[in-house]
Design a protein around this nucleic acid. Structure first.
Lengths: 172, 172
DNA sequence: CTAGTTTTACATCAAGCGATGTATAAATTA
DNA sequence: TAATTTATACATCGCTTGATGTAAAACTAG
């Protein structure tokens, strides 16, 4: 996705035309202006990760959480590799801070998606302080993503991820 | 600082003129082009935080680390409030990913600054696995910053920060 | 085959950008 | 005070952007 690679400002209508093969007039007629297209892209991204999380947390448990964080630092090498372009939602928050409420809303529900899955897994494991610990885990996720972004290296998040795994196992 | 508030792309030469009161020609003559001005701003920001950290970690200890994280979630309400505009360095990484090596270098040494201070404090407390734990703490810092940014609320980082404090005290 | 409609490719528009040139005002020095 | 240098205010340039208009091409229906 063009927005993922170049950001919102970095993506021009012309580059969108090249990337999609759809003509400029066609893009405008079907989707509307640039912001509308971007919102569609955000929604598509969110849905994609919703499917991924539904899969990872099909059986809510501590093991699911551990597997999730282990997966973070594994070299995926795919187009969806968070390292290559980062998380589109996180990128978006930083780029269009003052953006329309629509963007904020989509990002918020994206964040909430992680909180819910973490909470369910913690609950299933009969752990106390579910809400706080879920927030902690989400924070760790952001930390790992940022660490990888800052260092341009997936390995940079290994030490902190290992510490998280230790903490999680101390809960069980 | 204008770059802090509006980002690199969002800051125009004209807004810089208004903000500084310095004329456009003067800005160009003294600093050079826009990127040079931005690099100067980054360096100034880094130096500012260098002083803050030197102060906070004047006496390297676990207590210093704890105080640092407690300070994160306290309402500062100042112009340097990380919540208002976020961390300039983090913002920069997201905005100009493909930027010149100069930017990357400054951001890297900024990150390193935190690692060093955390490491020294952990060493002073005679804790094993200093390097990994320092990386963990830095990751937690990014996580807290991002959490605050995503939720537009300093309080949003409270649960995870408390968990970090628990983890730290478990080391001591 | 032809008339009507949709899709495509390209041109064009106003606006905003960074950068620079050009006169005027201020300051400094002899 | 007069001459020279420095600093300021404003205009302008070339470029890129998002958006839209226009004309040619492709497709569809009768």
């Amino acid at each position: 996705m063009a927005f993922w690679q170049d950001g919102y400002e970095g993506t021009t209508m012309r580059s969108l035309q090249e990337a999609t093969g759809v003509n400029g007039k066609g893009l405008s007629n079907v989707f509307g202006d640039k912001e509308q297209i971007f919102l569609k892209a955000l929604e598509a991204y969110s849905e994609m990760y919703e499917n991924v999380l539904n899969d990872s947390f099909a059986i809510p448990s501590l093991v699911a959480i551990e597997k999730f964080f282990e997966g973070l630092i594994e070299d995926q090498g795919t187009a969806e590799d968070p390292l290559s372009n980062g998380c589109l939602m996180v990128n978006t928050v930083f780029e269009i801070d003052r953006a329309s409420g629509d963007v904020k809303k989509i990002v918020d529900q994206y964040r909430h998606m992680f909180v819910v899955h973490f909470s369910k897994s913690l609950e299933a494991a009969n752990i106390e302080g579910v809400d706080d610990k879920a927030e902690f885990l989400v924070g760790m996720l952001w930390g790992a993503l940022l660490q990888m972004k800052l260092c341009s290296s997936r390995a940079a998040a290994v030490p902190m991820t290992q510490q998280v795994l230790k903490t999680i196992s101390s809960w069980g």
